[in-house]
Write a protein that binds this DNA or RNA. Structure first.
Length: 875
DNA sequence: CGATCCCGCCACATT
DNA sequence: AATGTGGCGGGATCG
């Protein structure tokens, strides 16, 4: 009741209004529960029962409202509790009534009455859900706290969550600005997009088997050293946060992530443990029980607020283990353009939201909230976290034995990292938080982010399948996922968002990004920035793709799903494959553009076909597709035969439609260190190219290749390979020739021992390219071109063979490595034991490294350092 | 007894 | 230094 009234009333100045509300409340309460003596008591007596009461009284003097509030505790409960709680309360009260109990007792609100959820409701009741755009409501924390009769601390809990959803923004110290739900849909949309990217897969996975895995994750104490490293850059949030300050950390971000989980979940139901596990990014591996517990606690806090907002509701999920607490999303699910939130309310569509947020960070506030912004800063700054973080538990390392769990977790991390980086790169550096994306509607980059998480099928080592990146939404994936997941015991894994494919043990793997299409289109984007690419990509992907973007229009996730099926089929075929497990990523190049004329060869296209075909026939460029498709099929077959037929992987792949959407999913080749590297792995980004790669770039400046070094441990289980194709790596290198060579060597050396390598398909193939083109470091175009030719060439005849680039890689591998064994990956795993940190020199071509080093000594050092650490720590 | 989660200490950030 | 923020987890309460 109150709510209604209030909401209506909720005029601009809540505060003032408050009094009104109160009055009403009072009125109500008594009515409702005549029974409860408490109320009676309350009303009649304002007197303070607490020492502080006096103070409050004084305050109240100023405003009657306040005074009510003061009582609030007493009053509150009853009032608030309306409904259920009321009843319960009543009961209690009744008992109390009996008389025996003191008023205190009665009054004493039960815990429930004091619950954060209730408090939040009260809080929300004070402000209109859809305030007039004109009015600006400011919220004074102190005031509210006093009114609601709680400590300020509690208000922070509420406000932080609301802030994460942009219902409020911090204006200044102690001052928040109330925005209401006008932008909620927009925010949710953004979160959904980001969530799918980040958690799409995971959610899918979890939904199926998850629990087990997760369970394990949690349960075991895992530690992870490596992760920490990752974390540094990888996690946007936390890690970067370090710089930002702890603030960025938790509640706000956690809240956003939590919401993302829901939005990325098909079922819209998320169990707390899963959420906790996923949200404990850091150390997933490591986390221990206590950490998990804490996380869950926080989630309860967030859940209470979200519940009050009517976005989720508590439910229970019964699973194998039994019944687990969970929450179901009951908020809006579709976010067409922007529209408002679920509830009906006028269409609104205010522009404002966008505006307001502006590009700002998620939290940007209306007014000047500069400080806050800083928080979000993310990686850019890349500072060590340590300073701030207090608990971070960085743990020591521990050996990990985990299986899937670990893998998963790691994968997740990687994925996250990659994703983030790419995103970040894409976007402004400034942005960091997951949400960061959110804000800018217009921003092209922004768009990029939204891409749905691609799902990757996991490929087993053996199986070469490639996956397509495009998974759109996890949804589609899911079905397939299971299969994928099955991969083995854990080895293969899906990366959540990433466009990676994990191969369990094979020595190296490729991960495909969703680029395909994009790449194609991009062909020459050169724009260099990722963003542009992404944009292009999006554009490119007409049908499906569109969705991703915020664009209101398209996006229908469903489409993607459709794709899957076919894809799946295809997949199966594919799998077979080669001993090497390469996958080929999709080629990125833009086939159509130049190089390959029509030839379906381009893997990319194929991919597309897979992914897209269903959905978007439209793509003009893709016209080729048809050919591609045919190819695909053929290819598939070919592939499949090769090896494990049974591979699970098959299904998964397709999913990826998203990828397509995605502008650039980063593709990485993962090189397994076995031989030389020992502990750390490198990921080369294939596509990313220019900017995005930032990760790599930042770290390894000079390197031509954008590599990411991952501690072996972390990856160990699954190696990732970056797709080479892309560009960037090559491009990066100034000297083209060198780059190519370098990369080669590089890979070689490292891999040499065990594995084959890969690399560069692209590189290899197009050595020539690299050289000159290299001039522009980043131009994507070149790469693409290269590839395409290759593809064409290789494919040309071959076309049929591999849809993807796979073929290429394979060959390459062979060439380079004769011995290498292919796959068997998992077993191989890394010997991270060795792990030492090898210096660059050790890695590959010394020369190359040197160059790098020279250039970027610093970076290198850092990298090394990390490596060392990781390596050491683990064991 | 497990699920919830209130409460408030206290570290870190901002003034 | 004072005050604002907010991480965090002990331990009370609920179911």
């Amino acid at each position: 009741e109150n709510i209604f009234d209030r909401s209506r009333m909720a005029p601009k100045t809540p505060i003032k209004n408050e009094p009104v509300d109160l009055s009403k409340q009072k009125g109500c309460t008594p009515e409702r529960n005549p029974i409860t003596p408490v109320k009676l008591v309350d009303r009649p007596q304002p007197d303070p029962w607490t020492p502080t009461a006096n103070l409050k009284m004084l305050v109240s003097a100023a405003s009657p409202d306040m005074r009510d509030r003061e009582k609030k505790k007493e009053l509150f409960r009853p009032v608030e509790n309306s409904e259920q709680s009321d009843t319960s309360d009543l009961l209690q009260y009744d008992i109390v009534d009996d008389t025996t109990v003191d008023e205190f007792e009665k009054q004493r609100p039960s815990r429930k009455q004091k619950s954060l959820g209730l408090l939040c409701q009260k809080f929300l009741a004070r402000y209109p859900s859809y305030p007039l755009s004109t009015e600006k409501t400011t919220i004074s924390l102190d005031e509210v706290a006093s009114i609601l009769g709680v400590e300020r601390r509690r208000i922070y809990d509420i406000v932080n969550v609301l802030e994460s959803l942009h219902l409020v923004s911090r204006v200044a110290k102690n001052q928040y600005c109330w925005h209401g739900r006008h932008n909620l849909s927009q925010t949710l949309k953004t979160l959904q997009e980001a969530g799918e990217l980040q958690y799409g897969e995971l959610m899918t996975i979890f939904q199926h088997k998850e629990q087990d895995l997760e369970y394990k994750f949690v349960e075991r104490k895992k530690e992870t050293i490596p992760d920490s490293q990752f974390r540094d850059f990888s996690e946007p949030d936390c890690t970067s946060a370090s710089a930002n300050s702890r603030k960025d950390k938790s509640l706000r971000i956690m809240s956003q992530k939590f919401v993302m989980l829901f939005l990325a979940s098909k079922t819209k139901i998320v169990t707390l443990d899963i959420a906790a596990k996923i949200l404990i990014e850091d150390a997933q591996d490591t986390v221990d029980h206590s950490k998990f517990k804490t996380k869950v606690r926080r989630l309860y806090d967030i859940a209470n607020v979200l519940t009050s907002l009517g976005l989720i509701k508590k439910v229970h999920v019964t699973e194998e283990r039994g019944r687990k607490p969970a929450f179901k999303w009951i908020g809006p699910v579709e976010f067409p353009g922007k529209t408002d939130e679920l509830r009906g309310h006028s269409p609104t569509s205010d522009p404002l939201p966008g505006a307001q947020r502006g590009a700002c960070a998620p939290y940007e506030t209306c007014a000047s909230g500069k400080q806050r912004f800083t928080r979000h800063a993310s990686f850019n700054s890349a500072q060590p976290c340590e300073g701030t973080r207090r608990k971070v538990t960085s743990e020591p390392n521990s050996p990990r034995h985990e299986r899937q769990d670990e893998y998963c977790s790691k994968m997740i991390n990687l994925a996250a990292v990659c994703r983030q980086k790419t995103e970040e790169d894409t976007r402004n550096p400034s942005v960091t938080s997951p949400l960061s994306l959110l804000p800018v509607p217009g921003d092209s980059e922004f768009c990029v982010n939204p891409l749905p998480p691609a799902i990757f099928p996991v490929v087993q080592a053996d199986v070469p399948s490639f996956s397509l990146p495009n998974s759109i939404s996890s949804q589609a994936l899911q079905p397939s996922m299971p299969a994928a997941s099955k991969t083995e015991n854990g080895k293969a894994t899906l990366l959540p968002n990433q466009p990676f494919l994990c191969f369990p043990s094979s020595s190296f793997f490729m991960l495909c990004g969703g680029l395909q299409e994009n790449n194609l289109r991009e062909t020459l984007p050169t724009t260099g920035d990722v963003g542009s690419r992404s944009a292009e990509a999006q554009a490119a992907v007409p049908p499906a793709a569109c969705q991703k973007r915020s664009s209101h229009k398209c996006a229908s996730p469903s489409a993607p799903a459709d794709d899957e099926e076919p894809a799946a089929k295809k997949q199966t075929m594919e799998q077979g494959d080669v001993p090497l497990s390469l996958v080929v990523p999709k080629p990125f190049e833009s086939p159509k553009a130049e190089s390959t004329p029509g030839s379906g060869c381009t893997s990319a296209e194929h991919l597309e076909a897979f992914h897209l075909d269903l959905s978007s026939p439209a793509a003009p460029e893709t016209a080729d597709k048809e050919s591609t498709k045919s190819l695909d099929s053929q290819e598939q077959e070919k592939w499949s035969p090769s090896k494990d037929p049974g591979e699970p992987s098959s299904e998964k792949e397709h999913i990826s439609k998203e990828n397509a959407n995605q502008p650039f999913l980063p593709q990485y080749l993962y090189v397994r260190p076995t031989a030389g590297l020992g502990s750390f792995n490198f990921l080369f980004s294939a596509n990313q190219a220019p900017g995005p790669i930032s990760l790599a770039a930042s770290q390894l400046p000079s390197l031509s290749v954008p590599c990411v070094v991952v501690p072996s441990a972390a990856l160990a289980s699954f190696p990732l390979v970056c797709s080479p194709t892309v560009t960037s790596p090559l491009s990066l290198v100034p000297d083209g020739s060198f780059s190519a060579a370098a990369s080669m060597n590089f890979s070689m050396s490292s891999l040499a021992s065990t594995t084959p390598v890969f690399i560069g398909t692209t590189t290899v193939v197009t050595p020539k390219v690299s050289p000159t083109p290299s001039v522009d470091p980043q131009q994507p175009a070149h790469p693409a071109l290269h590839l395409s030719p290759m593809l064409a060439r290789s494919c040309g005849t071959v076309k049929l063979e591999s849809p993807m680039c796979m073929g290429h890689p394979v060959t390459l591998l062979k060439l380079q490595q004769p011995s290498s064994t292919p796959l068997t990956p998992k077993s191989i795993r890394p010997a991270r034991h060795e792990a030492f940190f090898k210096t660059p020199g050790s890695l590959g071509d010394p020369v190359a490294w040197k160059k790098n080093e020279g250039n970027q000594t610093r970076n290198a050092s850092s990298v090394q350092r990390r490596l060392e650490i990781s390596s050491t720590s683990p064991d």
